[in-house]
């Protein structure tokens, strides 16, 4: 990878999770974005590695594609960068959506390869949750689904 690409990869991937207040916030220097990008490209199939690089270039060009602005991606405010990325993730063109999702997967790989972030996520093993009583959850705002309207012949579905 070129030095420019490495820097660009870090800028674009960081836009998924810029430093914010929530508990999982990725702190500056905590995640090696460019190493993750490089590792993903190296371990992927040649076509996918090409796609990952293409995704990077699409993201860099996205201020023009999304906002019609001639500003560079790096010159955007962090929140604006995230907004651009969000727009790519729901883009009307399938290929753009998929490539943006591939960038997001790479960002997630980077984030959770940091032991500190992983620990803060509280995601890994919590033995007290392994065997939970089969009780109903607390009431939530969601209305109760109507069993009669379930579009499947439930009993007939068994092997």
């Amino acid at each position: 990878m070129l030095t420019f690409e490495r820097r660009a990869a870090a800028t674009v991937l960081e836009a998924f999770a810029p430093f914010q207040e929530p508990a999982l916030a990725v702190r500056p220097g905590e995640v090696d974005w460019s190493r993750a990008f490089e590792s993903m490209a190296r371990a992927s199939s040649p076509l996918a590695a090409f796609g990952l690089r293409a995704a990077l270039w699409i993201a860099l060009a996205s201020p023009l594609l999304v906002f019609g602005s001639l500003r560079s991606f790096r010159s955007l405010e962090p929140a604006r960068r995230s907004e651009v990325i969000e727009r790519l993730l729901v883009h009307r063109f399938y290929i753009v959506r998929e490539l943006a999702l591939y960038l997001k997967l790479t960002a997630c790989m980077a984030i959770f390869s940091s032991p500190a972030v992983r620990a803060r996520s509280n995601y890994d093993r919590r033995p007290e949750l392994a065997a939970r009583p089969k009780s109903d959850p607390p009431e939530s705002g969601s209305p109760e689904p109507d069993r009669r309207r379930l579009p499947v012949a439930a009993a007939g579905g068994v092997l």
């Binding site: 999770a17 810029p18 508990a23 995230s82 997630c108």
Partner: peptide, 25 residues
């Protein structure tokens, strides 16, 4: 799935996404 894959499936990017990630469990 591992958190990497779950986080990829949770929609969005930026602040709203991070807010959701902070409640990943």
């Amino acid at each position: 799935l591992p958190p990497e894959m779950l986080a990829t499936r949770i929609p969005g990017a930026g602040k709203a996404w991070q807010e959701r990630l902070s409640a990943l469990d």
